[in-house]
Amino acid sequence: MTSRLRAEQVALGYDGRKIVHELDLTVPDGSFTAIVGANGSGKSTLLRGLARLLKPQGGAVILDGKSIHDHPSKEVARRLGLLPQSQSAPEAISVADLVARGRYPHQSLLRQWSPADQAAVNAALELTDTADLSGRGFHELSGGQRQRVWLAMALAQETDILLLDEPTTYLDISHQIDVLDLCARLRRERGSTLVAVLHDLNLAARYATNLVAMKDGRIVAEGDPTTIITPELIEEVFGLACRIITDPESKTPLVIPRYTPEGTTTP
């Protein structure tokens, strides 16, 4: 197994407070790696560290054999993209213009727009099924459409590795499936490596090829979702009593929380 992106004994946090503790993680090339864990388990912090947004307090994130902080920032941006959670966009911007601004790491002072830029933007719009929205104002779009447009912007960046920070949050179920189907397609058709922080365990189990379960800034379990998801693991990571059945659609593990009519969960 080859891996272009990995964390070595990385410690991450803010203002001296450590959230991720000396953690090792290897992201297999071409995998869909989903990071799951309870709120505050450090999964988003880990993703920010992998994306070079956070400087490690110790250890390093290694991209292509070198610490990610030793690469120039534009060089990193040509290899590794990020879909952050923030939604703010310039006023009055059109979809086409927004996606086009994702070409930044490939442009220079003189060559601010090239046929390659146009081709990448068109391909990204096509892939995310947003080509027919390209003339519209971004702020007129629905939440589901906006998320696809954000994805198009990140895809226009043409990176082999894409990190996604809770890409399905705030989306209704059909749009969640849309986004994750698209991720699966990217992996299949482009050979992209995807790392996503996901809240929905069942969707993570369905789409991920590699599942990373975190608790208190450490990795508790890692591997194929079908083998690692057990009632004991869910109990440990989420403190939730549950049964695991097989998803009749995808044959992946399906987590069913225990139910007692009184509303109290018993272990």
């Binding site: 994306a51 070079r52 947004l53 060089e75 952050p84 994702g102 930044y104 790491p105 002072l109 601010q112």
Partner: peptide, 22 residues
């Protein structure tokens, strides 16, 4: 001339513009 492109990218959130290498 130098600023124009970085500025137009920095109108997105800091996280997003940093992820594009800004």
């Amino acid at each position: 001339l130098v600023l124009h492109r970085p500025l137009s990218l920095s109108e997105f959130s800091d996280e997003r513009s940093a992820s594009f290498g800004l």
